[in-house]
Simulated assay, not measured.
Amino acid sequence: MKILALDTSTEYCSLALWLDGDVLTKEVLAGQQHTELLLPMVQTMLAESGLALTQLDGYAFGAGPGSFTGLRIACGVVQGLAFATDLPVIGISTLEAMAQKINARHVMAALDARMGEIYFAAYRQTESGWSVVQTPVLCLPELAPRIEERVKWVGCGSGFDLYGERLSAYYGDCLVGIESGCYPHAREIAQLAVPKLLAGLGVSAEEAAPVYVRDKVALKVSER
């Protein structure tokens, strides 16, 4: 199976080309330049691999949560490519993609959501993949969902980078470590997408959609 995966949910822009188990990747710290950088990166990656879009089997993207603009960019580009090639699309949780990076069986993943809040989810690794213990939510660090305390958890993501002390105090002994510098990457999105596409869970281009979690991006003056 050949899959093109991409993620623009954070300040990083990453691509991955899954080629029957081998993975080619590209990434750049894009800041606010995802729109300008993404399609040229796709063209370069395909040229270097000697593949055309018509030789792919599907597309995957970081569906969210994350930057509103970034999620729309990734979804829009994937939709355009899928429309042109009539191939299926699968959206992958950015929080689950971070869990996929971590060498641990129980992972809490959190992204900075701005305005003092985090996007938070928790996952347990099983033989068949990641089981969702806590679905993605938007919350203050000190109001994060309570998680099963009989097992040991590892935290990751920019939410833990920013609020590690508060989250460590909140979860106590059940949080045994924090992996710093972790962010969603197209490599893990491709890995998670393969079994879903093989199982026929891909959708058409028009059905692909971001997962925002937050329903507004700024505070009113009265809320500040």
Rank of each mutant, 00 (worst) to 15 (best):
G157R: 00
L29E: 14
L140M: 07
L17K: 04
C182V: 15
Q32S: 14
F160G: 10
R214V: 10
A104P: 01
V203I: 10
A122E: 09
Q100D: 14
A82S: 11
M45L: 15
V137L: 06
L51S: 14
E188K: 02
P141N: 08
V23M: 07
D7S: 01
Y212M: 11
S93P: 06
Y170H: 13
G31S: 02
A193H: 12
P88R: 01
G159E: 02
I90R: 08
L15Y: 02
K26D: 09
A5Y: 09
V217T: 11
G76S: 15
R72D: 01
E188D: 12
G129V: 03
G116F: 02
L111T: 00
A16V: 00
A208H: 05
Y212K: 10
Q100C: 10
L138E: 15
T135I: 03
H106P: 10
T8R: 00
V221E: 10
L56P: 07
I92T: 15
Y163H: 14
R114I: 06
G129E: 09
I92R: 11
S49T: 06
D86V: 11
K220C: 04
L81W: 07
P88C: 03
A109D: 07
I92G: 12
A84Q: 10
D20H: 12
Y59R: 07
M108Q: 12
Y163I: 06
E127N: 14
A122M: 09
R114D: 08
R105P: 10
P141V: 04
D22P: 04
M45D: 04
L4A: 08
L140I: 06
S222A: 14
A16Y: 03
M108D: 07
R166E: 14
A113L: 03
G58A: 15
A30R: 01
L175H: 02
R72E: 00
T8I: 00
E179I: 04
L167V: 05
E142A: 14
G58Y: 09
R150L: 08
W18K: 03
R187G: 08
N103E: 13
S49M: 01
T126I: 05
